[in-house]
Simulated scan of single mutants.
Amino acid sequence: MKLKAGIIGATGMVGQRFIELLRDHPFFEVSALMASERSAGKKYGEAASWYLTSPIPEDISEMEVQLIDTKAAEENGVDIIFSAIPSSIAREVEGSFAKNYPVFSNTATYRMEGDIPLLVPEVNPEHFSLIDFQRKNRGWGGFIATNPNCSTIGLVIPLKPLYDSLGIKSVNVATMQALSGAGYSGVPSMAVLDNMLPYIGGEEGKLESEPAKILGELDGSNIEYAGFPIFASCNRVMVRDGHTESVFIELENDFSVDEVRDVLSSFRGLPQELKLPSAPENPIVVFESEDRPQPFFDRNLGGGMSVSVGRIRKQDERKLKFTCLSHNTIRGAAGASILNAELALKKEII
């Protein structure tokens, strides 16, 4: 029997990705769509301006959108919550659901709190054990598990095998982030047409801090953060989907380009071992051609769940350069939360 899923923030871009990715999912089925007062009471097809190229599933289109409230979850027999709400309301809203439900969140609000796991299942599945401490600390029957910022996920997946095999002293990264990361109306067309924006509010701080927690060593109820610094510069560019990152790393040990290619292309994690439905066969796809990855061609590899890496170059002894690309609303948002939930189910956390 499938678990019944409620989506809060169901009408936005990430909410729509949840709907798309949960269609015919073997573990979960959508039973409740929740949004703001503006959408509540309407059929989903009327309330949502559908932005994706795939059509709205007919059954979803006819579902009534309900106000974000735990009562709606109770009335619909919900077992699990996927959250795509703004950070500005997440503390109160997600906390109210977590009293009784597992909440898989895309928002930044709880990410860096000590008892909240910040998860990338291929990288740090052991951090799920923080949920036991979270429930004791907060008196919740459910829990909150978060996935990182969309740019962080695309960076930390290739960092993981490099960190384990060669060690990392420091990272510099410049991002070229897609428009969908700001939401459908997030960047005015006249601001970005024939232009790029060299600043994204709050983004650089997330990219500089979140990997240290994700790559940190778990010690009981505490995480000893990874010790290397990250220096980030984040830019918004005129691409629909797919965040590209130029990465410059000083490693602890020297390397060859072939060695780095092997380390990255052979990387696998627990989701691949368990053959979870949303897990890509290859978490990292390595390109040898000089002009890849590119968002238009490569963002949907692995169903949008693979990170593409190319332009792998050795600058000097222990200094590595490469370009990586990930789909920001799939691997970087809804797909990440769903993969977290799949692993939680397999680990019998839900």
Rank of each mutant, 00 (worst) to 15 (best):
A5I: 02
G9C: 13
Q16K: 06
R17Q: 15
R17M: 03
F18M: 06
I19M: 02
I19C: 00
L21G: 09
F27P: 01
S31K: 11
A32Q: 14
L33A: 07
M34A: 08
M34T: 06
S36T: 14
S39C: 06
S39V: 03
E46H: 09
Y51S: 12
Y51M: 14
L52S: 05
I56A: 08
E58Y: 02
D59G: 03
I60Y: 00
I60W: 00
S61D: 09
E64L: 01
V65L: 06
I68E: 11
K71N: 13
A72V: 08
E74N: 10
E75V: 02
E75R: 14
V78R: 03
D79A: 00
I81N: 07
F82I: 08
S83H: 02
S87Y: 02
V93A: 05
E94C: 11
E94L: 09
S96A: 15
S96I: 04
N100S: 15
N100W: 05
N100H: 15
N100D: 14
Y101Q: 13
S105R: 12
N106H: 00
N106S: 12
A108V: 11
T109P: 05
Y110D: 07
Y110V: 03
R111C: 15
M112K: 13
D115I: 00
D115K: 13
P121A: 03
P121T: 15
P121D: 07
V123C: 08
N124E: 12
N124L: 03
P125V: 12
F128H: 11
R138T: 12
R138L: 15
G141Y: 03
G142W: 03
P148F: 05
L159N: 10
L162M: 07
L162N: 07
Y163G: 11
Y163I: 04
D164N: 14
D164S: 15
S165W: 01
I168K: 07
V171E: 08
V173T: 10
Q177R: 08
G181N: 15
G186T: 08
G186K: 09
P188G: 11
D194R: 04
N195Q: 12
G202F: 00
E203L: 06
G205A: 09
G205C: 02
K206Y: 02
K206H: 05
S209F: 00
A212Q: 14
D219W: 00
G220D: 04
S221L: 02
N222R: 14
E224F: 01
I230E: 08
F231H: 10
C234R: 04
R236Y: 01
R236E: 02
M238A: 12
T244C: 13
E245M: 15
F248L: 11
F248P: 00
L251V: 06
E252C: 04
E252K: 10
N253Q: 15
V257C: 07
D258Q: 13
L264H: 11
S265R: 10
F267V: 08
L270A: 01
L274E: 15
L276P: 09
L276I: 11
V286L: 07
D298Y: 01
N300W: 02
L301T: 10
G302W: 01
G302K: 01
G303D: 13
M305P: 05
V307C: 13
V309C: 12
K314R: 15
E317I: 10
L320D: 09
K321I: 10
T323Q: 08
L325A: 01
H327F: 00
T329H: 01
I330H: 07
I330Y: 07
R331A: 08
G332V: 04
G332S: 07
A333P: 02
G335L: 04
I338S: 03
L339E: 12
A341N: 10
